[in-house]
């Protein structure tokens, strides 16, 4: 066997090994994370590894630290202990790989600016210091508005948009970041049915093109339908894993404690979903 071939072979092996290692590198790895506001702990000792290319829901009762977890991953709050890695590197090194959709209520929608302008803000990192957005940037922003079905409203002042449309503007801004990993704080909160469907389609499209989406989600009834993977949080990590194995009545009970009404509804929805799926599988089997 000629030397060159051996070298080639070795190189290929190395490449494969590297590819394998990359495939195993989680999109987000959280280790021993504790976050406190003043002396009040909000997150305790969270260890997490979230896989790449999945739609991931973070669920838990109010005050469970869901938004805080997102903010800690983004470096917006400083943890007491622990660290976070994005695709095997610190967040600072991977920042350009991460897109962020904050809660809609976090900003003043009466701000004097247009939908297009807000989406363009997603490009400010690329545009760089001392430069104005160019025509090229504006076109990119328009394309992103198109993807959320908002191109015709690009020049509208943002207070003239409905809640669902405002949420879509935020999503378009995140799309403009062209990230590998998206962190979204309640993207489905307070939107109309049309927007909910549009957002879901978009999230699935992101996942199907290899992106990872992590969303704080409130509606337990739709978790099983919308997401692949779920993180259950109540200050501590209760469980995380694929929806099919982890989103069970037992684990929900442990996450939410005695809040039965929420639980019964969610469990019912879950059972319904399961029976639908099994019916579909049986139908396919015949």
């Amino acid at each position: 066997m000629p030397i060159s071939q051996i070298v080639n072979l070795a190189a290929r092996e190395e490449e494969e090994a590297q590819a394998q290692a990359e495939a195993q590198t989680p999109a987000i790895e959280v280790h021993d994370l504790t976050v406190a506001y003043r002396t009040q702990p909000v997150l305790w000792d969270v260890d997490l590894a979230l896989p790449e290319g999945k739609l991931i829901a973070i669920v838990g009762p109010n005050g469970a630290g869901k938004s805080t977890l997102l903010k800690a991953i983004l470096g917006l709050v400083t943890p007491v202990t622990g660290w976070v890695q994005i695709f095997g590197e610190t967040y600072a090194k991977r920042r350009s790989w991460v897109g962020y959709v904050p809660q809609r209520e976090s900003v003043d929608w009466d701000f004097p600016t247009s939908a297009l302008d807000v989406v363009t803000m997603g490009l400010y990192g690329q545009i760089g210091w001392f430069r104005r957005p160019s025509k090229h940037h504006r076109e990119t922003a328009l394309d992103c508005l198109e993807k959320v079905g908002m191109r015709d409203l690009a020049h509208r002042q943002i207070s003239q948009l409905s809640g669902g449309q405002q949420q879509r503007v935020f999503l378009a801004r995140a799309l403009a970041q062209d990230a590998k990993l998206y962190l979204m704080d309640e993207p489905f909160a307070g939107v109309d049915a049309t927007t909910e469907r549009a957002i879901l389609t978009l999230l699935k499209e992101l996942r199907n093109t290899g992106r990872t989406v992590v969303a704080v989600h409130h509606d337990l009834q739709t978790v099983a339908e919308y997401f692949d993977y779920v993180v259950l949080l109540n200050m501590r990590l209760v469980a995380s894993g694929p929806v099919s194995t982890t989103f069970t009545a037992d684990i929900l009970q442990r996450t939410y404690g005695g809040r039965l009404t929420v639980l019964t509804q969610a469990t019912e929805a879950l059972l319904q979903q399961r029976s639908l799926e099994s019916a579909r599988e049986e139908g396919e089997g015949e």
């Binding site: 920042r95 904050p102 900003v107 803000m121 400010y124 990192g125 104005r132």
Partner: peptide, 22 residues
């Protein structure tokens, strides 16, 4: 004039600005 777009972002959505690394 130099920091116009950054000041705009600061006034509208500072948390998002931080997430961009500004």
């Amino acid at each position: 004039a130099l920091f116009y777009k950054e000041f705009k972002l600061l006034s509208f959505d500072p948390a998002f600005g931080s997430s961009l690394g500004l």
